[in-house]
Design a protein around this nucleic acid. Structure first.
Lengths: 156, 156
DNA sequence: ATTATTTTGTTGACAAAGAAACAAAATGAA
DNA sequence: TTCATTTTGTTTCTTTGTCAACAAAATAAT
């Protein structure tokens, strides 16, 4: 296995592991709300005029899926929708007070994860940090270009 | 957003992007077989005496899911099961000839991905490479320990 | 040796997400 | 303006994976 492969495989394993571990914590602390819903809440709070399409693009999921998730969040009273006077098509979302509570709990959990993993991060030097960040960014931009080249988009 | 967060978010985005982009290619080249099935085939070929439990642990999925996937692969004639004379419980898998063909196509595709991303990898220095690898490994080991600490296992 | 516990794989009910078809609105072209 | 194309969000059907309960075999405890 060459280095490229090791990096890719390593990233996959790391990612899966993290999701697996954090999911359990989220289940425990945010009973009744799954990862998708919580991440959706996070995005809605942090971005301006979020709609189904933007959410789908951000999460690499279909618009259909996000349509269902946001519907569920509205039903649970965590978000509400709004529109602009000059556009009768696009539907945006914002958090309700109850939604903001969930957001805050998730933020705290996030901090907790960071503390949990602090040991790893304080071991690496500033230069290593920058190496990793620059690699991730470069790779990400490269894939963006490839995605564009292929004309792939969030479908259906 | 601090650096830790940037790394985590960056990794997530990078990972999702890669899956999204590669999935499309796999769909195109390996019509009739989805990512799970193909990855399952990959693992079976590369490891000794693979069974449902090992597959589930590797992919961070449930045994139930892998039981269904392997069943489907058997039905499609891509893998076959075998047992050992001294163990009537564990069921292992190996690829059939047809399965090996799929494996090979996937290998070729893998090489193609590597060529596609070569531009990124040839830009980074040996030191950067090692930085990234060592970080990924350290983080991975740290999460292993955390998973162990929590007593989380591949459930059901 | 007998009994209790754990491991392994399977199943059915359920939930989450994808695919495709669709209507309504917005945008672009003529 | 008018007509064609694109964008946006929704819905139905299907697929995929989880959860939980289970039986059979293996392992551990006594």
């Amino acid at each position: 296995m060459n280095k490229e492969e090791q990096v890719i495989m390593g990233l996959r394993d790391l990612y899966d592991k993290m999701v697996w571990l954090n999911k359990d914590k989220i289940d425990d602390r945010l009973k009744g709300y799954n990862s998708s819903e919580v991440h959706c809440i996070e995005y809605i709070e942090r971005n301006v005029d979020p709609n189904v399409t933007k959410l789908a693009e951000f999460f690499y999921m279909t618009r259909g899926a996000l349509s269902k998730i946001t519907k569920k969040l509205i039903k649970k009273g965590l978000i509400e929708s709004y529109q602009k006077s000059d556009n009768k098509k696009e539907i945006y979302f914002r958090l309700t007070e109850q939604g903001k509570e969930i957001y805050q709990i998730h933020e705290d959990l996030h901090k907790e994860f960071q503390e949990r993993d602090q040991a790893v991060f304080e071991q690496i030097t500033e230069e290593q940090f920058d190496s990793i960040l620059s690699f991730v960014k470069k790779y990400s931009r490269h894939l963006d270009a490839e995605i564009k080249k292929q004309g792939i988009s969030i479908k259906s």
